[in-house]
Structure formats: C-alpha cells, structure tokens
Design a protein around this nucleic acid. Structure first.
Lengths: 338, 338
DNA sequence: TTGTACGCGTTATCAC
DNA sequence: GTGATAACGCGTACAA
C-alpha cells in the first residue's frame, strides 16, 4: 500500500531491519575503519539501507559533528557575469568534493555581508568563499575563528588574512599599459572600481605605475572611480568624453564597465578604436558572441572553482598553514577595440 | 581575555545569564505568544542574548522542527544569463522572507537533479524551486510528499503537478509569428529547445500554429531542435544558412541561441535584418548594452523572485490548494534585427 | 507566567 | 566486532 506521507527512515529503522544496533549502522554507512565491523554485517546493513531507500539526514549529522557539508559563496552582485561564472565553476567543483553550495548576494554592503556570515555560522557551514569581499565586523571575527575561508578576486581587507585565488591584477594592469604605450595611446584614462577593493586598486596601480615608468602620468581627472556595472560605465564615459579633453583610450575595471563605455562611445558618434580605444578586464564568456571586438584581460574563470575547492580541502585538513595565494594565469586578449 | 576559539553561546548559556530556564529563552527569542512571558523577563533575556552576541543555531532548530529555513533553486545551466537573473531575483526575494538559498546546477541531467533532490530532502530544506525541470524519479516522489515546490519557466513534466511561474509561452510564440507575418517573413525557421521541455514546446507550437492559421506551414526541416546555448545556435544556424534554401527569418528558443545565430550570419556575410531577420526570447539584461539590435520577447525576469516567494509562502501555510499558475506579462521588444 | 523533560537523527565514547 | 548510551542545540507538551 502506498502511503503518501511515509516518514523518512532513520538509522533506527535500518538497524531494526538489519538486526544490528544503530551504532553499527552508522559505522558501516559512514565507512569508518573497515576493521570495526565484519564484512557480512556490513553487507546486511547496506542491503537493508538500500531496500528502505535510506538516506542519512544531513541535519542530524551536521548537528552532531557541528559542521554541515556545505560551503557558502558570497558575491557582490549575482547579476554580474563574472560572478555568475565564478558561482558556476565553484558549484561544480564543490559538488565533486561532496559539498553543497549556498549562494549569498552581499551587494557590496557590509551589513548584508555580516548578516550572511551570521547565518552561515548558525547553519554550521564549514567553508566560506568570498568573491569580492567588503570590510565588515563579522568578517574579522570569523576569519580568526578557524572556519576554512578563501578569498576570490579581491584580497581580504587589511587585518584579515586568508587564502586567495585570483590573477596578478597589478601585472595585468601593467600589461595593459604596455599595450597602450605600444599603440601610442598615451592620452588615456581609467574607469576603475572602488579603491577599497584590492583588485581594483592593484589593477589601477599596475596600470598607472607602468605608464609612469614611461613618462606618462595619469592625472586625477583621468582616474575615475565607478561601480562595476555597464550603467556606471556608460554614465562616467559620457561625462569623460563630453568633457573638454576626452581621452584617446580607456582602461576599464571590468568588462561590464567596458560594455557601458562602448555604448556611450557609439551613442556619441565615436568610432572604436579609431576615435576611442577601449580595454576591459575579465573576458566574460559572452564576449565571444556579443563583444568579439573587445580587447580585454582574459581571466581563466572556469579554473577558479577547482582552485578554491583545493584550498578549502587543504584548510579543512587542519594544521597550521601560512595563507596561500593561487595566481591563475591571465593574458591579454587583443581584439579590435584596442 | 580574548580566547580565539570561544564556542558559540547556546540557549543554556543565555538562560543561565538571565536567570531563567531554557524554555523561557526560547519562547522570548522565538517571539511566541507574548502572553507566555512577562515583559520584564523578556527584557532580561534579550539583554543577555545581546550581550553574549547569541545567535540561535539554525541547525538545532531545523532538526527539532524538521524544516530548514532555506530554499533550493535548481537550474539547468548556471552560466545561462536568464538562469543567473532568475537566481538573483529569487535570492533577494527569499532573503526578504527569511530564507537562504541553495543553488544547484542540474545541467539538464535527471541523475544530477535526483542527487540534488535527495540532498535537499536530507537537509530538511523546506522549499524547492525548479527552474527548467527535467523528468526524474525523485521528482515524482517528492512532488507527492508535501514539500512546497514551484516550477519556473518550464511547467512540470506530465504526472507531476505544482505551482508555476512563467510567461504565456504559447501566446508569445504566436505574437512573434504575427510580427513575422506583418513583416513579410513567411519564409522562416525556428531553432528551438528540446520538445521535452514544456516552455520550448509551447513557444514552438504557438509560433507554428499562428503561422498555420495564415496559411504558412513550418516544415520539419525548418524546425530545428537545439541546446539553449550560443554555441548550439551558431552551429545550427551555419548548417541552416548554408543549406539549399536558407530562411529569411529565424525565431530562436532563447536569446542565447539568437546570439549564436547572429554571429553565424555575420560570419557568413549576411546582413541583419536585410538578409536574415532574427528574433530571440527572454530579453536578457545585457541586451541593452551588447545586443541592442536584437528583437526579442521581453520577459520580466526580475519579477520572478517575488512571484515564486509568494507562492512558496502560500504553500507553506498549508491547506489543500489547486496548483496555481502565475503568468507574468511578456511583450515584444521590436528592435533592428526583425 | 515559568520550569522540567523529552525528542529530532546522527556520531562518538565507552563498555562488553 | 558489536551494543548501549550520551551528547549536539533547539522547541514544546506538560506540569507547576
């Protein structure tokens, strides 16, 4: 007879059916030391479990072991394509390591980030991945508290230490500067993300330092701080390009900004790259189809997940470690726009 | 003195500090019937909790109540922009309703979907949102089991019933057909998603039926089944356009396909819309910046989250309900490409 | 209005 | 090898 609301079987049910104690069931199914139970009982238990379609409750296990087999990913903007790709890559890698993923949107807001960190703690979640971290009180507290933690893209804000996965932002910025110089784009500007974010800061510093080494200085009016969205890029580009001395080239903090800048240029009747050169950062997956013209720094985002998962595994093995940094190789994707 | 690994305080700690029993603490903090405790004890408890920075363990609560305050979102392809936008919209709406979100990538694979459904069950997760469901054994079992469940975009496969949030796919397909007819694009084709997916099926049926009503028949060679990616769209478009009778216009199953079709057309030296008209579906957020030329069916994706959250809330209130359908308004965004 | 005591499903510790 | 049993942190029926 089919009852619609059959309760899930528990260890106890399996134990009864297999004629053993709950302890044995747990031992067999958790696959501890195979010397701790005989092969035949093991078979009996497994058979019973299979027949009742038993699935251990992750809830019970989590409570007992004080750790849920899940990781939380905090991103600053779920709709940003780069973030979405990181999420995708990480979700796959975590799944392969037996971890579920909880996705949290911090919207660059320290309060929201803290609220999520509290929730994460109260759920016993055993690993935290911060893609685009912001400074916040709970972050400091938790980073001291031993939960495995990996920072992606942006390095942790100052007192906080932790593993990092990203690219050599400074080097990449310098590479773009080299390219601009080789093209004769001395008359250039940068529309970059907030300097409170390490990644944005490093990209800008690498860029302007290299320019400086060749006698080109990036004056303050040519360093525009912006949100990392097409909307913001569009707005700032309009202002910049309709000013009294519009630049010949713009280095953008990410591809999203570059999309907005491009649109602004087109709207204003400028030709890219003849009138304005544009350089992005990230090389979003969709570029191949929708922005094949965009010169940008290629970031191997699909490799981020595995790198992060690897570090989390290392950390969970315990033992004192120095914070590690994994720098994935970037490259310049030189296309039409610059 | 600052201990680095202070254990989290529990109800018991708070109770001791406030000189009450654990029951009282629980009652006060859960905000049950305010008649069940005096205002002054309540204040004492809250003060103690605040001072110790007490956060209830969601794990303990979940185990006790057999329901975690979280929802799972299953998507067929995390990197698809439409899915990402649904995820973003839903995450916000859930958060406002006090629910966390677990993100699961099924990759259109029934086995993966089932693995996730098992996990979800074992975590006591109280709500399931399936964006782009596929048919699978566990789905049938769980849909009978009372867990609140909402289907997004694609209606549930046949024996399964459940609430639905999406657009009138059939009507939208017909609208596109009308537009094609008004433009004189009788000589057209469709590159659509798998017919096993209700949404793809309905879009195609609406489109071809309306054409048929005007004496235009969409022959089999002009109905191309495709994955919902730019890569697949590109591949199929190349084949179609280099065949002996290339169509004058193509209706695509979603914007991703349309991006690939567009690229194929450009690569082959065709002008859009002069040589080939293209119509998409979804109106991805990025279109404004990267594909402002794409005519497409606008879907109000940012409203999906609230709609889903609303249905989940209704369902969790219990009581027998007939499956509800929420159809959000679509519209044709007529731009250059068609 | 408050407190005591039990149970949610699991794993770990101890006996045997 | 295996079995009782005690936690984990919480909510709640019941008693006071």
């Amino acid at each position: 007879m089919l009852s619609t609301t059959t309760k899930r079987p528990t260890v106890e049910d399996v134990a009864r059916k297999a004629n053993v104690s709950v302890a044995t069931v747990s031992r067999v199914l958790a696959n501890v030391d195979p010397r701790r139970f005989s092969a035949e009982t093991a078979e009996r238990v497994r058979k019973a479990a299979r027949e009742m379609n038993y699935q251990p409750s992750e809830l019970g296990r989590s409570l007992r072991t004080a750790t849920a087999r899940a990781a939380a990913l905090l991103v600053p903007d779920t709709t940003n394509e780069f973030c979405a790709d990181v999420a995708s890559s990480l979700e796959g890698a975590l799944q392969r390591n037996g971890l579920s993923m909880m996705l949290c949107n911090t919207a660059e807001d320290p309060a929201k980030q803290d609220a999520y960190l509290e929730q994460i703690e109260s759920r016993g979640i055993s690993a935290i991945v911060l893609q685009g971290v912001v400074e916040s009180p709970a972050l400091l507290r938790m980073s001291a508290g031993g939960t495995p933690m990996v920072f992606v893209s942006r390095r942790p804000p100052d007192p906080v230490k932790g593993d990092f996965v990203g690219v050599d932002n400074r080097g990449a910025g310098a590479d773009v500067a080299d390219h601009f110089l080789s093209k004769g784009y001395e008359d250039c500007a940068a529309i970059h993300g907030s300097l409170r974010y390490a990644a944005s800061r490093e990209r800008l510093i690498g860029f302007s330092e290299r320019l400086g080494q060749h006698g080109v200085s990036l004056v303050a009016e040519r360093r525009i701080q912006s949100q990392l969205t097409p909307e913001a890029g569009h707005r700032h580009a309009r202002a910049l390009l309709s000013g009294k001395s519009p630049p010949r080239a713009i280095f953008c903090g990410n591809d999203s900004i570059a999309y907005g800048v491009y649109r602004a240029a087109i709207d204003m009747g400028l030709r890219v790259p003849n009138d304005l050169a544009i350089f992005g950062f990230d090389d979003n997956r969709l570029n191949r189809w929708l922005a094949p013209w965009l010169s940008t720094v290629h970031v191997p985002v699909s490799d981020f997940g595995e790198a992060v998962a690897g570090l989390l595994k290392e950390q969970s093995l315990g033992g004192k470690r120095e914070p590690r940094t994994v720098l994935l190789p970037h490259s310049l994707a030189i296309r039409e726009s610059a």
